[in-house]
């Protein structure tokens, strides 16, 4: 039950879905993050400090399937689709990210059959 509570607490930071079609699981991930470049100015002409996701890891049943490094060029509220071969219904896909200010978010989802 603790795990369920935790997923709900962080559900606003990462939303995801993993569906099996044929032999491919398609994982769609939507993250909530400002992705500030550090070059933008606010209304009173002050620079807004850089704040962006640098590292993102996806795992399938605990095994790493994707390691991504990002710069400031990924759009605000990042979107990601990845495709996994050899995954099946009931498997667990987890996403974790770390940003340049030391913040992190984690979310996992169980693979379901596409309708």
């Amino acid at each position: 039950m603790g795990a369920v509570d935790m997923v709900e607490l962080i559900a606003d930071k990462i939303k995801m879905r993993a569906q099996l079609t044929g032999d491919i699981v398609e994982v769609k991930v939507l993250m909530s993050h400002p992705m500030e470049t550090g070059r933008r100015k606010n209304d009173i002409e002050q620079l807004i400090p850089a704040h962006f996701i640098q590292l993102l890891t996806a795992t399938l049943n605990g095994k790493t399937v994707l390691e991504a490094q990002w710069g400031t060029g990924i759009s605000k509220n990042p979107y990601l689709t990845l495709r996994l071969k050899g995954a099946k219904v009931g498997d667990v896909v987890e996403i974790i990210w770390h940003d340049n200010l030391g913040k992190s978010a984690v979310q996992s989802v169980i693979v379901t059959q596409a309708l």
């Binding site: 790493t64 991504a68 060029g73 979107y79 990845l82």
Partner: peptide, 28 residues
């Protein structure tokens, strides 16, 4: 990479353990 961006490198994705070399994202 985006050649004419202030910092051209956008992202580097490394695949392993059955991940297809495929990605969809949104860039600036």
């Amino acid at each position: 990479l985006v050649e004419k961006n202030p910092t051209p490198l956008i992202a580097n994705f490394m695949f392993s353990n059955g991940a297809e070399p495929y990605v969809v994202t949104r860039i600036k």
